[in-house]
Design a protein around this nucleic acid. Structure first.
Lengths: 145, 145
DNA sequence: GCTGTATTTAACCGGCAGGTTGAATAGGCG
DNA sequence: CGCCTATTCAACCTGCCGGTTAAATACAGC
């Protein structure tokens, strides 16, 4: 109830049952009973799962008599994709850069040392990736849109 | 210890601290102490976090004297991206298709009904998305490569 | 070998997540 | 109205998760 959006989304998808529900909802809206059918857990449990997905913004509900069909909210995926892509790219760039450094080193001869050349963790010495505002549990809480 | 890979990855990233660690590792390898510095939790807690990330395959360790630097393993991101993209695309396609249906309905006049036209949940009546093998907690356990 | 630093292991604890059963609510229908 | 179906709410149990402290392990250096 007090956690940020991304955490809720990731947590929601960390459960295989919930992931499966999402997968099935991608093929079309469905009611709780329909969704619950394949699993060997009670309908109430599935109802809870859906609530989690809903709280994460992955699913919305509508109304049809006493039925409350679930609808997959695809936009939220973008949130994840964005987060993932950002750091994946960063990591890959760094990898390429390291490759270049190694190649140059190989070109020269050696230069010893291999502790942790560029890009430390605490006091960043280089100024390219600039680590844009993200969720910092200690301080600097969530800032991205 | 018995959960599938995707679950571990999503679960690992469901924690803000862990997500932050990943973000910082994207900028460069770092030791546990360095990683722990910004947070107000103990080093042991961070060590545990790293173990979770490692078990999820997101982080690998190397050796440097008594230090064990963490390295971000970017490939795992692909696993998530693939999963996400698949269902996002499916959902978007369905959305587009629904739009088309509505347009056609609007073209004619009505045709009543709006319960849940194509693509139910249990017995799929249409044969396009075919819901390729995914993790099914009940049966049909994980099958993708 | 002793001391200091980096990291992990072990034991413990409060809280929440996922499951259950049982009852309540909401709405079609004979 | 009374019944049936769909869904949720409430209370409860169990296990894992994130955190702690205390101790063990692994190395570098004097």
């Amino acid at each position: 109830m007090s956690d940020d959006r991304l955490s809720r989304v990731f947590a929601a998808l960390a459960d295989p049952t919930r992931r499966d529900i999402v997968a099935r909802l991608a093929a079309g809206d469905a009611t709780v009973n329909e969704l619950a059918a394949p699993y060997d857990v009670t309908v109430q449990a599935v109802s809870k799962h859906i609530k989690v997905l809903q709280d994460a913004g992955l699913v919305s509900r509508s109304r049809d008599a006493q039925r409350r069909p679930c609808h997959l909210e695809a936009e939220v995926f973008d949130l994840m994709t964005k987060w993932i892509e950002r750091y994946r790219r960063e990591a890959e760039d760094r990898f390429r850069r390291l490759d270049a450094v190694l190649a140059r080193m190989d070109d020269q001869g050696d230069s010893g040392d291999q502790g942790d050349p560029p890009g430390r963790a605490d006091g960043r010495t280089d100024g390219r990736t600039d680590t844009p505002p993200d969720d910092r549990p200690a301080a600097t809480e969530e800032a991205a849109s």
